[in-house]
Amino acid sequence: MDGDLMSYSQLIEKMLAGDKRSCAKLITAVENDPEKAEKIIREIHQYTGKAHIIGITGPPGAGKSTLTDKIVKKLISQGNKVAVIAVDPTSPYSGGSILGDRIRMQDLALNPDVFIRSMGTRGYLGGLSKYTKNALKILDAAGYNHIIIETVGVGQSEVDVVKIADTIVMVMVPGLGDDIQSIKAGIMEIGDIFVINKSDLFGADRTALEVNMMLDLTMEMDRRPPVVKVTAVKNEGIDDLVNEIKEHLNYLKESRKLEERRKANIKLEVLELMEEQLRKIAISHTDSENKLEDEVIEILNKNKNAYEVRDKLLKGMGTHLRESL
């Protein structure tokens, strides 16, 4: 165990010095082993919080990866260090996945200022993987000052990227439905910047118009999100988009919304960690003396109800809880 911890300290040291392989190994560790993740995150926390986190989301085939490629190129041309976490879906049947986002970012592989990592969702439904947040922290600590999270192709309700990103770029394309789609709840509500990609296609003006109309309907808004038309494959409109991304960060800083957003996300993170830990403790408590099994029979036979059993088990958990922490 100690040896293990030692080697992680060494990896962290090397990662902080800019070694990509150590960075990659640390991401593997946080992705696979919650205990190692905890040790690593505890150690690197002080180095995090410096990067501008940009979430890129939108339906499958909207051009998120191609757009990411172009944004990264622009950012590195301005002297930035950029990391990308590209998430693709994991099969619910086999647990396997095809992670194909790198195909659109081939010429970035060798750039010393770029780090790209692909992740499967591994059963997590919010458009990210459960471990994206921890991977992000490692890349942040490693000194990448812009980190792009490319979500899986989303449908209507995968909005978890708001929990970790500062700026959300919502990518849309012409031809995916009428103006009713744009007033629905869900992903249309989370964009800080709306991009109409494939703007050279028929219908792009109409899509832009519909999104603009939807945005103008919202009365209470501190900042009206801009709508940017781009054609990522032709590298058109990318400069405007990158300017808007920077503008948004300035806005967040000046209005103190950055701090607000990050505070809300940290609160959420702590609550999630508590929930996870409590769940673990509760399960080990109820498992320990087969308590749950007997109560289940009681509920089944209508002698008790589920709420009653919950309260009883929780009351009995007090000492177990203290011992577990």
Partner: peptide, 28 residues
């Protein structure tokens, strides 16, 4: 390999050995 439960990173056509190695390192 996907159907066998593996995470497969496919990088596309016409890669130089250097690009392949860089991807292998970053993807661990």
């Amino acid at each position: 390999l996907r159907d066998a439960g593996m995470e497969v990173i496919y990088t596309g056509l016409r890669q130089t050995p250097e690009q392949i190695v860089a991807a292998a390192v970053q993807e661990d």
